[in-house]
Design a protein around this nucleic acid. Structure first.
Length: 501
RNA sequence: GCGGGAGUAGCUCAGCUGGUAGAGCGCGACCUUGCCAAGGUCGAGGUCGCGGGUUCGAACCCCGUCUCCCGCUCCA
């Protein structure tokens, strides 16, 4: 039997990347020996190096290269009121209902609101308003059965099947919850944070005061977040456990638009500096804004399955700090000593916030799919073959260089190992002597190692080695003493970050 | 959660009308070799996703279930 043809080349590209990621130790399905866990993945030996490099590069760009941005690492567990204040408890769940005939799913509240709008359009304002009021009361009381009864009572039918054969109304809360404390009945429900941002907002004053931070300033954080997505798909693009790299920039009210523009441009440049081509990046401006935002734009990358968000830049106004002030009863304000146009201090205010938020796993997938390269060429016998390699920017490659003795005797291994010993404290380098040297080159191509260093008989005479470049497969003969500076120059974060200024 | 497709060795797959599993590549050891997936010898690795059922006998037929991919739905 024939394997079904892939629907399109883009789908098979994703398939190839998933297979490659698994086969060469980048990403494994979680708990695979138990059949895996839906939408959860583990990073393997090379994946973790790549991801760590991406995080380090982001961290450097956001904190150390900005005098006024510092980092925090907040706990995943937070006081339950945090999520009341942020709006996630009320706004992060939806009542859903399915029609059994058409198999279509709807938001139950939307169905009823549409019906109300229908009445109003027909001129029956009272009946429409009455319906809305009843819905509001049911939602307030979390009476899902009541919502369903209301749908039946109003004889609301599925627009597709035209029937009223409905399932129960179910609440899909996107936050994971658990209990804190040893005794469950006494315990409070604790949520796993659905975003890292709140860990920054609740520490705004701690950092501002202990760091003597002056507005405008930022707080950066890298950490895990959790969302119980109804549907998690597309490999590591949408996972239930994922990692965010985000920075909240606190600004004087009224200046948020200029800072929004600033970060929008800065962040896009960062992705380009990393090697994501400009042609594969685009803006997506949000038409419908989240409850906290006054401007929002995504940076989208062209994944094998189309343009999708890798980073969001949001102007969050003072929504979060103001809300935390209300719930915590602690003033979240800042005294601004700078003088306004009238020569008077700006004084007390709750800062506005501009947020940049990258999905670390999405960035990983973007970098991996961008790096995946198939080159048509010929093998040593002149037969056509495909050379597959991962074209990572050297600064983020899991392994920076592999050192090979040309043969496994005559003192070449010892010479090669001495080079390894000299370089390993500065770079992630490996030594390999098994198999023919051509195969060793290929193995390094497959995991994206940018440089291979070969020790041959000439090395014993004059201390020179060949350095072979992954992308071109070309070789150059250099002195051993030059290796540190050649590799160091290529893999330095500076090569990436200097493009930002 | 619904619909469609898939699950056999690390990877890609073969396995006929049911008769208790194979190939290529890869992997490990050794020999030979020495610059782009070389050759030879030997070897490891699979309760055919899992659980039931039918049958003398199931990778294959039936039922259930899990996971992945695609399309819906949802997405702060």
């Amino acid at each position: 039997m024939q394997k079904p043809q892939a629907q399109s080349t883009t789908e098979s590209t994703l398939q190839k990347i998933i297979s490659h990621a698994k086969e060469y130790g980048f990403v494994f399905p979680s708990s695979e020996i138990y059949d895996g866990l839906a939408a959860v993945y583990d990073y393997g030996q090379y994946g973790v190096e790549l991801k760590n490099n991406l995080k380090a590069l982001w961290w450097k760009a956001m904190t150390q290269l900005n005098e006024n941005i510092v980092g925090v690492d907040a706990a995943i567990f937070m006081h339950p009121l945090t999520w009341k204040a942020s709006g996630h408890v009320d706004g992060f769940s939806d009542p859903m209902i399915d029609n059994k005939d058409s198999k279509k799913r709807y938001r139950a509240d939307v169905l009823i609101e549409d019906k109300a709008a229908e009445y109003e359009k027909a001129g029956d304002e009272n009946r429409g308003q009455d319906l809305r009021n009843r819905l509001a009361r049911l939602l307030e009381a979390n009476d899902l059965e009541g919502v369903r009864n209301l749908i039946l009572e109003e004889k609301i039918v599925c627009p597709v099947s035209g029937t009223a054969n409905w399932t129960d109304v179910r609440q899909f809360n996107l936050m994971f919850s658990t209990q804190m404390g040893a005794v469950a009945e006494d315990a409070d429900t604790i949520y796993l944070r659905p975003e890292t941002a709140q860990g920054i907002f609740v520490n705004f004053l701690n950092v501002q005061k202990t760091g003597r931070m002056k507005i405008p300033f930022g707080i950066a954080q890298i950490g895990k977040a959790f969302r119980n997505e109804v549907v998690a798909r597309q490999f590591i693009f949408r996972m239930r456990e994922f990692e965010q790299m985000e920075m909240q920039f606190f600004v004087r009210p009224g200046t948020q638009q200029q800072w929004f523009e600033h970060w929008k441009e800065t962040r896009r440049k960062w992705h380009e500096a990393l090697g994501l081509p400009a042609s594969k990046l685009k803006w997506h401006v949000h038409e419908k804004l989240a409850h906290y935002a006054d401007s929002a734009v995504d940076i989208e990358f062209e994944f094998p399955f189309g343009f999708k968000e890798i980073e969001g830049i949001h102007s969050r106004t003072d929504f979060d700090l103001r809300s935390h002030q209300e719930y915590s009863k602690k003033k979240q304000q800042y005294f601004d000593n700078d003088l306004d146009e009238n020569g008077k201090p700006y004084g007390n205010y709750i800062p506005y916030v501009v947020e940049t938020s990258v999905g670390a796993d999405r960035l990983f997938l973007a970098v991996l799919s961008n790096a995946y390269t198939e080159d048509e060429g010929v093998d040593a016998d002149g037969n056509p073959k495909t050379r597959i390699f991962l074209k990572f920017h050297p600064s983020i490659a899991p392994i920076k260089a592999a050192i090979f003795p040309l043969v496994k005797r005559d003192g070449l291994p010892e010479k090669a190992k001495a080079i390894l010993e000299d370089l390993r404290y500065d770079f992630n380098v490996i030594y390999e002597e098994r198999d023919a040297i051509g195969r060793r080159y290929t193995r390094q191509d497959l995991i994206g190692t940018p440089f291979c260093i070969a020790v041959d008989y000439q090395t014993l005479e004059d201390d020179t080695v060949t350095i072979r470049y992954r992308d071109t497969t070309e070789q150059k003969r250099v002195h051993i003493s030059e290796l540190r500076s050649i590799i160091g120059e290529e893999v330095s974060f500076k090569r990436v970050l200097e493009k930002l200024s």
